[in-house]
Computed example of a mutant assay.
Amino acid sequence: MTDWDLRKLRVLRTLDELGTVRATAEALRMTPSAVSQQLSSLSKQTGVPLLEAHGRRVRLTDAAHVLLRHTDIVLAQLERAEAELEGFARGEAGHVRVGSFATAIPRLVVPAVSALRRDHPGLTVKVHQADAAEVYDLLSAGEIDIGLSLAAQAPTGQDGRFDRAELLTDPLDVALPSHHRLANAPGPRLAELADEPWIYGDAGPWRDITIAACAQAGFVPEQAHVAADWRAILDMVAAGMGVALIPRLAAASRTPGVALRVLPTDQPRRHVVSAVRSGARERPWIALVTRALNDAAVALPNVQ
């Protein structure tokens, strides 16, 4: 029976994710030479070539992808084993790292951490702000234990490395200058804003969400200003510089000069999910933090 080295398997997994030996070495804090040696050793151990030349780069062979498929299963099972072992130490101090996109931190993560500090003083929670898509890289690298992200940013459903669960559905409201013609109109529709100047980011999920919602309403939004920070967007709307879609998680307090209107007919939504490495959700401390996040989501007003 082959004596498997998990370190070599993790090197192969990271190479598949990042694409180059140099990037793999940087991510794992190794030298490129050490990465190549680990992969060469793993290839000799398995008896099949795991890499093949592809221009100036290398790519994984079909045999390597078979090995990775089983590696994901093995790593998930080891996470479950560690979860059971942690059950023997439930009374000891724990440490959980939570990665989250910015708008989920004040209204989900902070209330959850506050409740945990009160009820479980032996548990330490470290928060790591990251982009919605980045949390999966952080999970894969072992830098966080729980990631809050958007369903639209998740890897494909066939990716067995992660276990995802929906946390809440975050409706998007339209932010209008308070003097706007539709600021007090009953039941505004997105199509009525087709000729307005729009404010949204130049890349990332929010640009995609805005364009997709407007496309569903039958128009392409004219991007008058580029911004990704919600405070900046709301201030620009208040100044009459344009309109924007705002998630309710980001609009916790009223902004003077801004009318936030619900779009009852064509209400766009984004889905917030929690993600962990496969098998890790059963770990006692991770389960505890996950429940606290779920409780914080349920307690949010006006968010489903």
Rank of each mutant, 00 (worst) to 15 (best):
L12A: 10
H65C: 01
L182D: 04
L182N: 07
G187E: 14
V48Y: 00
M30T: 10
H70L: 12
S43L: 02
L148M: 02
T265A: 14
P111R: 00
R291I: 08
A165Q: 14
P106C: 05
R261A: 09
R59K: 15
T71A: 15
R291A: 15
P106R: 05
L193W: 10
A34C: 07
M30Y: 03
L300H: 09
E282Q: 14
V58S: 14
E26P: 03
P221N: 04
L300V: 04
L263V: 03
A81K: 07
G19N: 01
V35T: 12
L172E: 04
L85N: 12
W4G: 00
A132F: 01
A27N: 03
V110H: 11
W285A: 13
A115N: 01
A53D: 09
T124I: 08
T46H: 12
G147D: 08
L28T: 09
I233P: 00
A259T: 03
A224S: 13
A76L: 06
L60S: 00
R231C: 11
T24I: 06
V109K: 11
V74K: 02
T20I: 06
R181V: 14
L108T: 04
D119K: 03
R207S: 12
V135N: 07
E196G: 00
D173Q: 10
G47V: 12
S41N: 14
H70F: 12
V110G: 11
P264L: 07
G19T: 12
V273W: 00
S178F: 00
G99N: 01
A244T: 04
A25T: 01
L234W: 05
A244M: 09
A165M: 06
D119V: 08
D159Q: 01
A183I: 05
E79D: 15
G91L: 06
V96D: 07
V258I: 06
G187H: 13
E84Y: 04
T71Q: 14
V21K: 10
L85H: 13
R22C: 01
S278W: 04
A244K: 03
G279S: 07
R117E: 13
W206H: 15
D235M: 11
R10M: 13
V66E: 15
I286T: 13
A227Y: 09
V96E: 05
T71D: 13
A104I: 07
P221I: 00
L293R: 10
N294S: 15
A23Y: 06
H65D: 06
T265R: 12
T124H: 12
V303P: 04
S33Q: 14
R254Y: 03
G279R: 10
T265H: 14
S100W: 08
R161Y: 05
W206D: 11
E196S: 02
A132Y: 05
T24A: 00
A244L: 01
A299K: 01
P188E: 01
I233G: 04
R118T: 15
L78N: 08
H225D: 01
G218W: 06
A133N: 03
V21I: 15
G122I: 08
A275C: 13
